[in-house]
Design a protein around this nucleic acid. Structure first.
Lengths: 328, 328
DNA sequence: CTGAAAGCGCTTACAG
DNA sequence: CTGAAAGCGCTTACAG
């Protein structure tokens, strides 16, 4: 390449980095003719930077995370960064594996941790690697950058809505209590219930794992109780789908027999039978914000300066047809 | 690291690569104590391999591609490979950009090309980079490895189903005719219609872009015709959702006024109002198969040997409630 | 402005 | 079995 243009490799490098060079024309001609592209591996070795961001989410087939990743991807590409993607499959061990594996291959990491107690993120941070949380936080995560939503308020909105319809026999299928959204959504829900003078009965206070199957099974369990609830809150999109399938299979009328309100909207939410009432929140936007936060850190070459930056977005109630007054 | 263990870097390297080494214990102790991990950049520079696979899909928020990517991710991680993910956003230019950008950073590429005429994949292949197509093929792609489904047969199944119900005023919203699935699904559909003695009328032969909005707009267009169709085939999941929203907004009864059959099932398919009839196909499995095909090539260190390997999976009709006999 | 040289962190053929 | 040395392809401080 350098030979073809009749200059040294150093000059080619300078040209590529935007320096003024006498032989620019000849070099560019050679680049085009040979389709030359500098070796990323060599650049990384020299510079210690890879222009690659590691992204670890629990499940890319969850439409929420798919949207978040899409936001990250477009925000990163605009700035010349690429994305190394991994699924943790809701497992801390797997998260540890993928994080450890990618740590020397990326300039920074965006992570939705499997649990708030995960320790690997702390090691990542201690290693000087910029880290941003999205969707989920770490216990004591105040010192980390994060893009979250007000899950507690979202839980409150769901409970308030059901209370306002007159429900008293209310159930919740929460996510893992070791995760931020799992815990906060339930806490907000319980708080608002208490504000309304209601208690979340133990048999109506169920915990799933953010997967469809758990929503399905736990809903069957609720339906089998002597006196089933008249209203149900499902703490994420996949469990909502599972719950809806269980209600559907058991021929339970919505909202006549059971009202249901989910957390996170579905693309088909308005088309369901009946249309689904949900607590909605920004999705693609969260990915964009998280990526920008991380790239700012990288840009400053400063991974701690100015303290942590934490963005909390609002949720909002979308009333549709799956919630109504309780059955008599 | 080598110093800490009192040996040379060469010996550490040998130990890490599984060679028998006298100082193995001391080295391992040092590795654990320091949390040492070899630099991927240096390894790549030396070996010319990155153990990273580039994955380019048109849209990660399409549940089909999310599932495919999930399959790829698990299949790759099992073998110690990572995934560099990019969206082409259905654009050949963007695909060219991301492909060119990642080419020196990956050992192989799995791609769902934006169009069958894309040229960049040819350059990728010519550069000696193993390449596997998934979901979509390239014109003259017989020489490339690929994991596809029988789209033509899927189109035929959709048309046959509508014919069997007695429909004669049938419309189709196809995908880009420059893509394999777009073209083949429409061709199969038209063929089966012809077998039934029917022609796809020009005003009922519409082409969208595999995005929800196009399904929505084109359905509005169909509904505005003097005598609308009694049945509609939408050639992918997102356009199906768009069509359903248009039918919903216009208060068109399904299937009483219009029957609809989509291509690709939705997680909420059985829960829609009415449940959605679709042509279904394996999703996660396609990703797994594509990744295995690629890793086999890499394992053999042989990117052309034995000719191309092409896997074509079958589609299948899932009858639910959105298709019925035509309105009188 | 430009080239020679050093060095990023590995791996491996070559001696020993 | 093991170390010294070379080299993978870049970038950059140093001379000129």
């Amino acid at each position: 390449m350098a030979a073809r243009a009749g200059v040294s490799a150093a000059t080619v490098s300078r040209h590529l980095r935007g320096h003024r060079v006498r032989t620019a024309v000849a070099i560019q001609e050679a680049i085009d003719a040979l389709g030359y592209r500098p070796s990323i591996a060599a650049q990384s070795l020299k510079s210690g930077r890879t222009r690659t961001i590691g992204v670890v989410v629990p499940d890319i087939t969850n439409p929420y995370f798919a949207a978040v990743v899409k936001g990250m991807e477009s925000a990163s590409r605009d700035r010349g960064y690429r994305i190394l993607l991994a699924n943790s499959d809701e497992s801390s061990e797997r998260e540890d594996d993928v994080l450890t594996d990618m740590i020397h291959q990326v300039d920074g990491v965006i992570l939705a941790p499997a649990t708030e107690q995960d320790e690997t993120p702390l090691h990542v941070r201690d290693a000087g690697m910029p880290l941003v949380f999205v969707d989920r936080d770490l216990a004591g995560g105040e010192h980390f950058d994060a893009v979250l939503v007000n899950n507690r308020e979202g839980g409150r909105q769901a409970a308030s809505h059901l209370l306002s319809l007159g429900h008293t026999r209310i159930a919740a299928i929460s996510g893992q209590q070791e995760t931020t959204p799992g815990r906060h959504r339930r806490e907000g829900f319980v708080e608002a219930l208490a504000d309304g003078g209601l208690e979340l009965l133990p048999e109506f206070d169920l915990t799933g794992d953010f997967r469809e199957e758990s929503g399905y099974q736990l809903t069957l369990q609720l339906l089998s109780s002597a006196e089933p609830p008249t209203a149900l809150f499902t703490a994420n999109n996949l469990m909502t789908v599972g719950a809806l399938k269980a209600l559907h299979d058991m021929r339970v009328g919505i909202p006549d027999q059971v009202s249901i309100i989910g957390f996170d909207d579905l693309d088909t939410g308005p088309l369901l039978n009946p249309p689904l009432t949900v607590i909605d929140r920004p999705m693609v936007e969260q990915g964009v914000l998280a990526m920008r936060l991380l790239l700012q850190r990288l840009g400053q070459g400063d991974d701690r300066g100015g303290g942590s930056r934490r963005i909390t977005l609002d949720t909002k109630l979308v009333r549709r047809g799956s919630t109504g007054v309780p059955r008599r």
